[in-house]
């Protein structure tokens, strides 16, 4: 049997100088590099994931005693926020929760139309060259420290509002909403513009070839096709606005009240972030007030997490609908 086999092996026509089989050391080295390397990479990646989990855990643990002591009902439904009262401190956070949602919503009213129209303009109307100059400038808006925005709000915008619109105080809901909308713009424009550009020349050509004007092409084909990415951009901008601290602290007036009437933007309000930043320094560690502030922080964290999931959902959908899974 052996004999027959060896006879059948033909002399190779081509000689391969490099062996095709791994040597023992190569094999071991490869094994070690593969597993140790991927373990290290995993560790680095996991650091950021771990940080998120730790922050969540820390905030939850600090806030938990508050929940067991006061319950969540009063916290969410009462507007009485008297954390330092000597007898019977009250922790009704409704006014500041509403305040946060209020300025965020008003800022979206300003930033969404501007952001979407600006991204249409950037992607389809101006030339490629000018876009290359303008887009980075818009993105610089995101890099300006928020305290600089705060300075602008307090020293320039507030006196202007007082003088020209006759507001009793220049630091109010309108002022902080305007600033927040400017801060949300770069995020909205950047994500929405990417998505509008990515919807492709083919779609636009198809529309033009049927006799559509540029306006019709934009509003009937391109924006509907890119809507997932646009919504994702808006949600990301919203996260920016709701989590912003310094500007609202400086520009909102810091009065914990629900705006009444709701459309009057000249009223002062206070947000969750500004409450934490403003009051944390005055509290004793472990006091009820301290725990209440952590409770607000936990709520904020949950809210931004939800928004994050929403934007993730829309971004995934945008990628899918553009065939880039």
């Amino acid at each position: 049997m052996d004999n027959i086999k060896s006879e059948k092996i033909l002399k190779p026509a081509v000689v391969f100088e490099q062996p095709l089989v791994l040597t023992f050391t190569q094999d071991v080295k490869g094994f070690l590099f593969r597993y140790i390397g991927s373990f290290l990479l995993f560790l680095f990646t996991f650091t950021s994931v771990f940080a998120v989990l730790l922050i969540f855990l820390f905030v939850t643990l600090e806030a938990f005693p508050f929940l067991t002591k006061f319950g969540i009902t009063d916290f969410l439904t009462s507007t009485a926020w008297y954390p330092e009262a000597k007898d019977g401190a009250e922790f009704g956070a409704m006014a500041i929760i509403v305040g946060s949602i209020y300025v965020t919503a008003i800022s979206l009213v300003f930033s969404v139309p501007v952001g979407v129209l600006a991204s249409v303009f950037l992607s389809d109307i101006i030339s490629f060259k000018i876009r290359g100059i303008v887009k980075p400038i818009i993105e610089i808006l995101a890099a300006i420290p928020s305290v600089a925005y705060g300075f602008f709000a307090v020293l320039i915008l507030a006196p202007w509002l007082q003088k020209n619109l006759g507001f009793s105080s220049g630091t109010n809901a309108l002022n902080s909403s305007l600033l927040l909308s400017i801060m949300a713009l770069p995020t909205i424009i950047s994500v929405a513009e990417d998505s509008i550009s990515a919807s492709g020349r083919e779609l636009r050509e198809a529309s033009y070839a049927l006799g559509a004007t540029r306006f019709e092409t934009m509003f009937k084909v391109v924006i509907p096709a890119a809507h997932s990415g646009i919504i994702a951009g808006i949600v990301l901008g919203m996260m920016r606005a709701i989590g912003e601290t310094m500007v609202v602290w400086m520009a909102s007036g810091n009065a914990a009240q629900i705006p009444n009437p709701w459309w009057d933007l000249s009223q002062s309000i206070r947000t969750m972030t500004a409450s934490i930043a403003g009051e944390m320094g005055e509290t004793a560690k472990g006091s009820d007030h301290y725990r209440a502030l952590f409770m607000i922080g936990l709520l904020l964290l949950v809210m931004t997490l939800m928004l994050n999931l929403v934007s993730e959902y829309f971004l995934t959908r945008a990628r899918k609908s553009l065939g880039k899974v």
């Binding site: 083919e202 198809a206 509907p224 096709a225 609908s321």
Partner: peptide
């Protein structure tokens, strides 16, 4: 009218 190389229906 025009028909393009790649099918390009609107979404």
């Amino acid at each position: 009218g025009m028909v393009f190389q790649k099918p390009n229906p609107f979404p």
